[in-house]
């Protein structure tokens, strides 16, 4: 089971939920925690893993052999990101624009382009409370986070329960993080801001064909419009977490609540039961749909 935990809006409690869920499951399951928020990873603050290994992550960038280059401009034509400019007797590569797709090297008729790795960050692996922990750290100022996210996800072990902690938003880094998940839990809050970004995230997941459920954090403040939205859109609400002083105090100390409260450990186990049920129901519907499509 690959569970992604995401949200449109930042600061809704994705990491808090992901960490507590992982810890609640750890007793009975082999759990892997994948922090894909490579721009600002923070699950390690809760989980305090012992990191055993560090690997560089890189993307391939073109290097041009000007002895072979005829300045034909084919590489520039096939580059979708304007990372190469070609003039009559000159060629320029703008590494920070390069997405590492390799098209320029592939299409170069003179074979003048070779791909050389450019470091974009690191992947760290470790263990925390019996949980297999992996995260990525993007180099400051680096724009290309998806290749690092892919490198982090490359460490996934399909034999385990995989919990992916996604970055906020609905753009490339989030799509890269949640792609391939069996189910996505969207953490939101009952405010106009939470609702707006939740509806964007739901649209994104529909495009990716990933079934979703919602967790409403700070559930007893704000209004009912998130609940109404979920009912209308047929997205199940799987858990409510109240706006609670004790929870806030533990959070402020960087402490996961399930390590301090068996009540909350049971609640997160209950959430897992609901997630697997919702995921199975969605998979069932999918099979049904395919059977209908097949005639």
């Amino acid at each position: 089971m690959i569970l992604a935990i995401a949200s449109g809006k930042g600061g809704t409690g994705k990491t808090t939920v992901a960490v507590n869920l992982a810890l609640a499951l750890e007793e009975n399951e082999e759990v892997q925690y994948i922090d894909c928020d490579v721009e600002e990873p923070n699950a390690h603050i809760f989980l305090k893993p012992d990191f055993g290994s560090t690997e560089m992550a890189s993307i391939p960038n073109p290097e041009v052999d000007e002895n072979k280059c005829t300045y034909c401009g084919k590489c520039k034509e096939v580059c979708s990101f304007n990372a190469i400019a070609v003039f009559k007797d000159n060629i320029l590569v703008f590494s920070e624009l390069c997405h590492g797709c390799g098209s320029c090297a592939y299409f170069c008729p003179e074979k003048a382009i070779t791909e050389v790795p450019r470091d974009i960050g690191i992947v760290e692996k470790g263990v925390a409370h019996g949980i297999d922990f992996i995260h990525g750290l993007l180099n400051p100022g680096e724009a290309m986070s998806p290749p690092l996210i892919d490198a982090v996800k490359g460490e996934m072990d399909s034999q385990k329960v995989i919990i992916i902690d996604a970055p906020p938003g609905t753009s490339c880094p989030v799509v890269t993080s949640v792609k391939g998940a069996d189910f996505c839990l969207l953490v939101t809050e009952p405010t106009p801001f939470g609702l707006n970004d939740l509806s964007l995230a739901v649209q994104m997941l529909r495009k990716l064909d990933i079934p979703a459920g919602v967790l409403i954090n700070r559930a007893d403040i704000g209004d009912k419009r998130v609940e109404d939205f979920c009912r209308r859109e047929g997205v199940p609400v799987l858990m409510h977490i109240p706006f609670d002083e004790e929870l806030a105090k533990l959070y402020a100390k960087g402490e996961p609540v399930v390590l301090h409260s068996s009540i909350w450990r049971d609640r997160f186990r209950g959430l897992w039961t609901k997630i697997t049920a919702a995921s199975d129901a969605a998979a069932g519907k999918e099979t049904e749909r395919k059977e209908v499509d097949a005639g």
Binding site: K76, F81, N82, A83, A85, V86, F87, L92, F94, L97, A143
Partner: peptide, 18 residues
């Protein structure tokens, strides 16, 4: 041609002007 480019508009525009 590069007014709507998601990135590298300056590079593409320079290429165009030249």
């Amino acid at each position: 041609p590069s007014v709507g480019a998601s990135g590298g508009a300056g590079v593409q525009a320079a290429q165009f002007i030249i």
